[in-house]
Computed example of a mutant assay.
Amino acid sequence: MLSGLYGPVSVSADQGFRATVRARQLGVVRVSAVDCPAAEVRGTPGPGGARAARYHLVLAPGGEAVLEQAGRSVRVGARGPVLLDTDRPFRLHLTRPRNTVVTAHLPWAERDGLQGLVARELPGREPLALLVAEFLSGLARDETPYGPIDELRLATAVTELARTLLDHRLGDDEGPAAPVLLGRIQLYILDHLDDRRVTPDQVAAAHHISTRYLHRLFQGQELTVAAWIKAQRLERCRRDLTDPALRHLPVHTIGARWGFAQPADFSRAFRAAYGITPTGFRAGALPAQKQCAPRQRQVSAVPADSTS
């Protein structure tokens, strides 16, 4: 029964061992819960290449478990998931008389840096890890029949939460996923520049990370998060001020459409960045637009591939 969840396994337990398995298939994602007594589960992968669902997030909302893999040992609890690779040998010790283990089977054959996270403690007391754990536990208990579209949305939610959690941990280790997460965040900001509510706190919340961690991601960009947002908004304003099709719009309207609520604030910010007021820039006070380069250093481009 457990082989269907973790691949080829052997179970060592008292005589009469019985496990109850509940599984929910959500497109390419499967969330399952196993209720069983104390036991030792050994994963014994067979020959062949990596499977499409080799990585699993595991947590134990009931009882206690210890995962051993890749020369590491980690306690599996209720507050934060642990990463398991079923294409490598492992041992899962279920230590209590009754245990409940929830597993999310992720549709990833391989991702950069994941091997370094196998059988390691992920952020277990931070809001993001708790959110992932509660969401997966809730899905495992949920018996609501969902239609295909809702199942697809739930599968997307599981994979995005898992990706964000693991990217967060990789970022703490300055691993290769940190630039990818930064690129994803920058693209999000660019898509929401016209929303005045976009602030560092809002951006962090939208990506299920702490504001402190968001600032860490931007440390190599030579601008703070707030300054990066302002610089992108000013660049959109500068572009619109040179657009003949928008000549009929007042200067303050162009500033407002890119998040500058007060005309005076827009004028000061534009002058600080470009050395001229937005009205003067539009009037052609400079001989050529190319001479109007920002005074502040521009940030690096968003990575081309930011959807890993």
Score class of each variant (00 low, 15 high):
V132K: 02
I209R: 01
Y213D: 11
A227T: 11
F281M: 03
F218G: 00
T224E: 12
Q202M: 15
I149R: 12
D305A: 09
C292W: 09
R96A: 13
A13L: 07
P303M: 04
R295E: 05
T211S: 14
D173C: 08
L131A: 13
L131T: 12
G284D: 12
P200A: 08
S10H: 15
D240G: 07
A285M: 15
P179A: 02
V180H: 03
S306D: 11
L217P: 04
T242Q: 13
H93W: 09
Q186K: 13
L181I: 07
G116Y: 03
R233M: 03
S32C: 04
T156R: 14
D194R: 15
A52G: 14
P287G: 10
A53E: 13
P61C: 06
A78R: 11
A245Q: 13
T144V: 15
P107S: 03
H93C: 04
A65P: 04
V225E: 04
T199Q: 05
V21S: 01
P263K: 02
A231K: 05
R295C: 08
R233W: 06
R236H: 08
A162V: 00
A283G: 08
H252R: 14
L106I: 03
V58Y: 05
L241D: 01
P37D: 01
V9C: 11
S308K: 07
R247I: 06
Q219V: 15
R163C: 05
L122F: 04
L161K: 01
L286Q: 10
L5Y: 02
L130C: 07
S306V: 11
R91D: 02
R72S: 11
A133Q: 08
R239N: 13
A205H: 13
L130Y: 10
S300I: 14
L154Q: 04
K290C: 04
E68Y: 13
T100Y: 01
A23W: 01
A38H: 04
I229E: 05
H105G: 05
D172M: 12
A23N: 01
D87C: 11
I209D: 01
G46M: 05
L114W: 12
D85R: 06
Q219Y: 15
V82I: 06
D112E: 14
G175W: 00
G4Q: 03
A65D: 02
D173E: 14
E235N: 11
G46S: 07
H208P: 09
R212N: 13
P45M: 06
V101C: 09
E40L: 12
T95S: 10
P81V: 00
A269P: 02
E134W: 09
V225C: 09
L190R: 15
H252M: 11
G280L: 08
E40C: 06
R257E: 05
T277H: 07
H207M: 06
P250S: 02
I185A: 03
A78V: 07
R42K: 13
A304D: 13
D243T: 09
V101N: 02
R30Q: 09
L154A: 06
D265F: 15
V102R: 00
A129P: 10
